[in-house]
Nucleic acid binder design. Structure first.
Length: 394
RNA sequence: GGAGGGGUGGGUGAGCGGUUAAAGCCACCAGACUGUAAAUCUGGCGUCCGGAAGGGCUUCGUAGGUUCGAAUCCUACCCCCUCCA
């Protein structure tokens, strides 16, 4: 496959952390990069101008959701993903593999593909690696992803192996379909490594996927319930086995501390719903940790949520006003919180790129951790279990 | 003056003889959210002891009473609301 319009240039690589730049038909992306998530061709609550204004260089959309609604042909006829959503920059689409994982009861899976029952109208759909690839070709993002099988961390090794081998077969099919198509010039296809938290499986998977000439390599199947330590370790193990001259993308990660740790493991790209989802629920990231603006104590707080932040929300509004917006359920609250959190994350990425290129990333990382207090791991596990139970998917 | 309705935990509001320390909602407290079926979800919320299971104490306007047992029934009193004069 030769995607003449996509390339990756590594600028500095210092004991793990690296910085570089991706060139795509819709523009360049400095790395390490964070992609705000625009599942249904919209970063929830924000206009493309706001997403750009917050410092995003590339966004992620979801091919499965857009395939169900409005339909990939519709998006194509509307001028393609970027034109459709008025995002004049690089974009990546995910295949829908993750939806097979997260939509639990609505799907069945075999070696041929994933049989979904639409959450919208109950209709049945069969997502194969071929279809996932074609869907993404029609959508027209700069980077498209192989269909993979994500699996939860409670699964036993035989099951994880099966999912991994299936992911490998599908990767070959996706590559074959794409490489021989007219789209290969304009769209870069990334492969995805699976294998859970099993060292031998991850090694096998990384070697297998790296053996296919993709334009970039993703690490999938992490941040699905395993401990953070396991996640960091697995990430580092896999990146070490991937080609140095291709971008590495850690899918679905992460929280501020995860981003710092995984950049340290040599990751170049990330995406995560946390900044927008946490924001919609009243959570604001700061350099000291995350705070919940709906607490009574912010009612008459006249200062900004984070005085060191340069975002629109912090420059313009008081914490007390944001408290009020959330209590009154005004839409502006979640919007401003999303703007703040995305700005926080994107700025963190900017600072990491800077630190790497100035050969002081280790110090930056240490300073970050000294100030930032992440949420308690035990509480995470407990809440996660309760959540799954309440949702009935566990 | 006449007729009727009502006073329940921080607020609202169910309950109308035992299974009620008292539903639900709000507020408040604590927490979760990682390739978005999420502007969502979980737990706590009289008080004391206990890690927990559980146990003690005090609550439904006030004061009495009936009953094995009362927020629920009776009496008196104090407030509040609606309608008619």
């Amino acid at each position: 496959m030769s995607s003449s319009r996509f390339s990756f240039t590594l600028k500095y690589s210092l004991a793990g952390a690296r910085t570089g730049e991706m060139q795509t038909p819709h523009g360049s992306v400095p790395t390490p990069a964070f992609m705000p998530v625009a599942t249904q061709a919209s970063v929830k609550g924000l206009s493309p101008d706001e997403v750009r204004g917050v410092g995003a260089d590339i966004v992620l959309a979801n091919a499965y959701h857009l395939y169900l609604r409005p339909g990939v042909e519709t998006v194509q006829r509307m001028g393609g993903l970027q034109r459709f959503m008025e995002w004049n920059g690089p974009a990546l689409t995910d295949s829908g593999g993750f939806q097979a994982f997260s939509m639990g009861s609505l799907r069945r899976m075999d070696d041929e593909g994933i049989r979904f029952r639409s959450h919208l109208d109950g209709s049945e759909h069969f997502l194969t690696p071929e279809l996932a690839t074609v869907n993404q070709q029609l959508l027209g993002a700069d980077i498209i992803m192989c269909l993979d099988q994500c699996i939860n961390n409670e699964a036993g090794k035989p099951e994880v192996r099966q999912a991994m081998e299936r992911t490998h077969r599908w990767a070959e099919i996706c590559h074959q379909v794409h490489a021989s198509s007219q789209y290969a010039q304009d769209q870069a296809l990334f492969g995805i490594v699976q294998g859970g938290v099993f060292e031998d499986l991850r090694e096998e998977s990384a070697n297998f996927i790296a053996g296919i000439p993709f334009e970039g390599y993703a690490v999938g199947g992490l941040a699905v319930g395993e401990s953070k330590a396991q996640m960091y370790e697995t990430t580092g193990q896999v990146t070490a086995l991937l080609p140095e001259d291709k971008p590495r993308y850690l899918m679905g990660v992460g929280s501020p501390e995860d981003l710092v740790e995984c950049v340290a493991q040599g990751v170049d790209m990330f995406d995560c719903v946390l900044p927008t989802r946490v924001g919609r629920n009243g959570g604001f990231y700061t350099r000291e940790g995350r705070l919940d603006i709906t607490k009574r104590r912010y009612m008459e707080d006249t200062g900004p949520v984070d005085e060191s932040c340069d975002c629109y929300a912090c420059q313009r509004f008081s914490a007390g006003y944001l408290w009020h917006l959330f209590k009154a359920k005004e839409l502006l609250g979640p919007r401003l919180a999303s703007i703040h959190n995305l700005r926080f994350i994107l700025r963190l990425m900017e600072e990491m790129r800077q630190a790497i290129s100035e050969d002081r990333f280790d110090r930056f990382r240490a300073e970050f951790h000294r100030a930032y207090k992440p949420t308690d791991e035990a509480a995470r596990q407990e809440q996660k279990t309760r959540w799954l139970k309440a949702r009935g998917t566990s």
